[in-house]
């Protein structure tokens, strides 16, 4: 879709720039993902008291790791913004650098989360222990899965930028992945607040 003259024609005929169409489409997809997480949150809130005589979240959650993860993810959201700024200045090296930093921070987040899950399982809390833990692992794990897919995605975008440089099509890919990355940080804010903070209160 990188044919310059076609966009002028399309615009004159009232048709949208295809890159903008895709960005709008992705925004709508994110909106549906909000609903997906809403359902997971609703399930968690409804079932959070059901520990079936087993361990409670407050018994096993270790906030230190969570605090570190939170700041890591927050920072990676910021660095993805820096990537976007580089891109808008036409700075290909900066773009790739900051995307890579964001991905690495994301990877650290996942590493910490997996470690947390392993610790919880060792302490006797797995997805089948009680409704509370089923909801916990599913909500937190779904977010983690989204982050993991995002890391793969960022990597693929980095490769495409390295090969093709900054073009309307690669710009759109960067805009979309950074939107996705910010969205994941927003979800984490609520996971952090509702799953973790409200548990250890």
């Amino acid at each position: 879709m990188a044919k310059a003259h076609s966009h002028e024609h399309d615009h004159a005929h009232g048709h949208q720039d295809p890159e903008q169409l895709k960005q709008f489409g992705f925004w709508l997809f994110m909106v549906t993902d909000v609903i997906l997480f809403s359902t997971l949150f609703a399930t968690f809130v409804v079932l959070r008291g059901n520990i079936a005589g087993g361990p409670a979240g407050a018994d096993l959650i270790e906030m230190n790791g969570i605090i570190v993860s939170t700041f890591i993810l927050l920072t990676s959201s910021f660095t993805s913004g820096l990537a976007l700024l580089s891109m808008n200045k036409g700075n290909k090296q900066g773009l790739i650098l900051w995307l890579a930093v964001s991905a690495l921070l994301g990877l650290s987040f996942i590493y910490l989360e997996v470690s947390e899950f392993v610790h919880l399982v060792h302490e006797g809390a797995n997805i089948g222990t009680s409704a509370y833990w089923s909801a916990f692992f599913t909500l937190v794990g779904t977010h983690g899965l989204h982050v993991s897919l995002g890391i793969v995605w960022i990597t693929s975008v980095i490769i495409q930028i390295a090969r093709r440089g900054i073009t309307p099509a690669t710009k759109r890919r960067v805009n979309i992945i950074s939107l996705y990355w910010h969205f994941l940080d927003v979800i984490w804010i609520f996971v952090f607040s509702i799953v973790y903070l409200m548990e250890v209160m």
């Binding site: 925004w27 709508l28 909106v31 909000v34 609903i35 609703a42």
Partner: peptide
């Protein structure tokens, strides 16, 4: 607009379920 509507549905799902 789509975000606002999403928030309305979000609140419905969470508060309605509770």
């Amino acid at each position: 607009i789509s975000l606002v509507f999403a928030v309305v549905i979000l609140l419905t799902i969470v508060i309605g379920s509770i």
